[in-house]
Amino acid sequence: MTPDTTAVTRLLRQWQGGEASALEELTPLVYHELRRIASGFLRRERAEHTLQPTALLHEAYLRLVDQRDRDWKSRAHFYGVAAHLMRLILVDYARSKSRLKRGGDVQRVDWSEALLASTTRPALLTTLDDALCELEKLDPRKGRVVELRYFGGLSLDEAAEVLGISTATVGREQRMAEAWLQRQMTSGPHGA
Rank of each mutant, 00 (worst) to 15 (best):
L100Y: 12
E134K: 07
L156H: 15
R172V: 10
Q182S: 13
M86G: 14
S96P: 00
T6K: 09
E19L: 10
Y93Q: 14
L138E: 15
R36L: 11
F78L: 08
R36D: 11
L57H: 11
L62T: 05
R13N: 06
A94R: 05
R63E: 14
V146Q: 01
L135W: 05
G152K: 09
L57Y: 10
L181S: 10
A82L: 02
M86Q: 15
K73P: 00
M1R: 10
L56K: 03
R102L: 13
G188F: 07
L11M: 07
K142A: 08
T9S: 14
G143S: 01
T186D: 02
A117H: 13
L156Q: 14
D110G: 05
D110T: 00
V8R: 06
G191Y: 03
P189N: 10
R87V: 02
T5C: 01
T54F: 06
R70W: 05
L56M: 00
A83T: 07
L163H: 06
L132H: 01
Q182K: 07
P140Y: 10
L62M: 03
T50S: 06
S187Y: 04
L135Y: 02
G164E: 11
L115P: 02
G17K: 09
P122W: 00
A123Y: 04
T167I: 02
F151N: 15
E19R: 10
T9C: 06
A168L: 07
L34I: 08
A179K: 13
L115N: 01
G153S: 13
R144A: 14
R144M: 12
R108K: 13
A38G: 08
S112Y: 12
A47V: 08
Y79A: 00
H32I: 08
L51V: 12
L100W: 10
R175G: 09
R95W: 11
G171Y: 05
Q16G: 11
G103P: 10
